[in-house]
Design a protein around this nucleic acid. Structure first.
Length: 289
DNA sequence: CGCCTTTGACCGGCGC
DNA sequence: GCGCCGGTCAAAGGCG
């Protein structure tokens, strides 16, 4: 069958089964580092935070603290290939930032009106089939080692569904940004090959400059972030270290954030420091670098 | 009371 | 065409 290309192919791969089934962690992390030069901006753009605090990202820490996986890891792969995807070597994975391609080379031509139409269509359960397949936002995923499924990333999310995933004993949760007119979605699932790893997939781009925290002018509270986003938008502040959960959940600061973000430096300098990274990536993976 | 999670049902896409 | 599966909806209930 004619399948969607590029990003959509990957999303299908990711959507069909457990993430780590088809993209060994090693590949993910390799990509993360090697593709970092192209990825971070797009990644942050997708989060809608690229302009919020540029200096934050000029520190050589332009990516999420953990493995950032572009959904278009392997644009050459079809769905079927995805099932058999096996990088020849850890460093030779064909992973690339095709999601960036989707954004840059082929900008998502979904304006707000179209978006609204799509949503209205969905809401009204009138799936009028147009001649074109449902257009989806570029997606990207990353893995984190965490005991909790829903990682705090500075935005408020509302869970709208949960599904059991085939070939995985862990359910997949679906979240949507609670901000009106913001259509960003998030999928959270656990890698069944490594239950300690949480795979978070973002879809779409935040339309609001800063996380909305209606309940929390203090920066704390249910579902709110434990720090002041207005000052330090940190979309993935606490996704890396499990240590943050439990005893640091309410006091993550920018320093900590920077500390963690070193992991995904687009350059090579920051890769030297594994620190918390060692908590996330098996040692043998680090050696591969 | 408002917001959130839970959960079963529904729908569309895709493979066979 | 049928069945599987991912994704979404929406009602119900819980919580602060």
């Amino acid at each position: 069958m004619e399948r969607k290309e590029g990003v959509l192919k990957m999303e299908e791969v990711l959507g069909n089964s457990s993430f780590s089934d088809y993209f060994p962690l090693q590949s993910i992390f390799d990509w993360n580092c090697e593709g970092g030069e192209n990825m971070p901006l797009g990644f942050m753009e997708l989060l809608g935070v690229q302009d919020l605090n540029p200096p934050l990202f000029d520190m050589g820490q332009q990516q999420a603290p953990s493995a950032v996986v572009n959904q278009a890891l392997n644009p050459c792969s079809t769905k079927n290939e995805g099932f058999n995807y096996q990088p020849a070597t850890p460093n030779s994975s064909s992973i690339s930032s095709a999601s960036s391609e989707a954004v840059n080379d082929e900008p998502i031509q979904v304006d707000d009106d179209q978006e609204e139409d799509q949503q209205k269509t969905k809401k009204q359960l009138k799936p009028k089939k147009t001649n074109q397949k449902r257009q989806r936002e570029p997606r990207f995923a990353f893995m984190t080692k965490s005991e909790v499924d829903h990682l705090e990333d500075g935005y408020r999310w509302r869970k709208y569904g949960q599904k059991a995933v085939k070939n995985s004993s862990f359910p997949r949760s679906y979240y949507r940004c609670t901000t009106t007119s913001c259509n960003v979605k998030k999928r959270v699932e656990r890698s069944f090959t490594d239950p300690s790893m949480v795979i978070t997939t973002y879809e779409g781009q935040h339309t609001h400059p800063s996380p909305i925290m209606p309940r929390s002018s203090l920066g704390v509270g249910a579902g709110s972030a434990p720090y002041h986003y207005q000052q330090h938008p940190q979309p993935f502040v606490n996704t890396l270290s499990p240590l943050n959960f439990g005893h640091n959940n309410g006091s993550i600061n920018a320093g900590n954030f920077h500390h963690e973000r070193r992991f995904c430096s687009p350059g090579s300098s920051l890769l030297k420091d594994h620190g918390l990274l060692q908590d996330v990536i098996p040692s043998h993976m680090l050696k591969e670098e």
